[in-house]
Design a protein around this nucleic acid. Structure first.
Lengths: 211, 211
DNA sequence: CAAATTTACTTAACGCTGTAAATAATCCAA
DNA sequence: TTGGATTATTTACAGCGTTAAGTAAATTTG
């Protein structure tokens, strides 16, 4: 059925148009200025047409949140080349922060906004993307423990601690809580990276991965 | 002038009514469901009356954000009794997390929502409340360094690291990022507290404040 | 005490918002 | 070509923040 196939493709294409228009608005004007009507303007359809492709606005945000995770995954491909688990961990942290600072809108949807999680609950499934990311972190920590780079601890607790710190750094920065505290604007990222340095250094018990 | 004084008092009282109604809505129905019109309903005035007491909605949020800091300060009074700076630090962390988990709406305004900071920029002044809180943390760290409880490091960087971690814990929890990862709901707070334990333990170089 | 003025508040309106229901246009198979 | 399904639009509802204009009460002034 070549015809049904083509239709399916068209459907996907409009979906893609909607998501791209949403992200464009999201990036250019912020979360609060993304409206169904403005998305419709961009893709040159009527506002209600969007509801033929997405159940509601939250579903659009949920999809963008997933695209965000794909982008992050892409960025993290280089991690596979790093043998030393502690160095890999550092790079993971740096990437995470870089991703968050360079894509604050995606980061918002992935880790701050409630809407995507609401959709997840609605669908009754669990957070596959977040789960995968955290598992990756945990596995790296376990490897680092086994090879004697860091002290033995509950890997779940340690994962959470590390994730919390990098998330804290990114979200405080993007939500404008550091601007008022760190005098020079250009100094924010360096200070954040120093925090990562401190973290890695205080994890390292072998000195093998010292700065 | 007894009459002007009384008028002033009445004005303040209506302001207070508005703020209380806002917080009530905020707590009961979340940030997105606080509207000028619903606030007006609660205080039984017309919506436009609110604009006689606050310039706009953001100004209401800014005021609530300041009230939040007062509440947090109140909670932290007990800290003065603790001599050991490392134990004091731990208590600070526990209080911070407890405050955030028990008052997620205030916490939101204080550390997540952009509106209060926008207002701050608009007024051209700096973040007095955040500044004071961070200074308190930094001073405790400096004291702990001087007394040999923790290793010597840049206190600014270390303050940021610690603040980021506790903020990360609270915000990941309140923004529903842990629910999907920590199996049992009742286990979230315990796991978070274990993270704090880990942090304090890895700071402690003297063993004096071990668990 | 009456008139003028200030204060406190409300009504009406503008231009937005998400979304549901009804209607119209388009497409494909018989 | 006609009829049913799909796709898109029009219309509508109820809500939003905010401004401008209007009103009534309180206060000050003559």
């Amino acid at each position: 059925m070549g015809i049904a196939e083509r239709k399916e493709k068209q459907k996907l294409e409009i979906r893609k148009m909607i998501l791209e228009a949403s992200m464009q608005l999201f990036v250019e004007e912020g979360f609060n200025n993304v409206s169904i009507r403005r998305i419709a303007d961009i893709i040159e359809y009527s506002p209600t047409t969007i509801y033929l492709y997405f159940k509601d606005k939250d579903e659009i945000f949920f999809n963008l949140h997933e695209i965000g995770f794909q982008k992050m995954l892409e960025m993290n491909k280089e991690l596979d080349d790093i043998q030393n688990p502690l160095l890999r961990l550092r790079k993971m942290g740096e990437n995470y922060i870089r991703f968050g600072m360079e894509n604050p809108e995606y980061y918002d949807l992935m880790f701050i906004q409630r809407e995507p999680m609401k959709k997840l609950t609605e669908m009754g499934c669990d957070w596959k993307n977040g789960d995968a990311a955290l598992t990756r972190l945990r596995d790296t920590l376990i490897e680092a423990m086994e090879k004697g780079y860091i002290a033995q601890t509950d890997p779940i607790v340690l994962s959470l601690s590390i994730w919390s710190m990098v998330h804290g750094l990114v979200s405080l920065a993007t939500r404008e809580r550091l601007e008022k505290l760190v005098p020079e604007k250009g100094q924010i990222l360096p200070v954040i990276m120093q925090s990562v340095d401190w973290l890695v250094k205080s994890l390292d018990i072998s000195g093998k991965a010292a700065l």
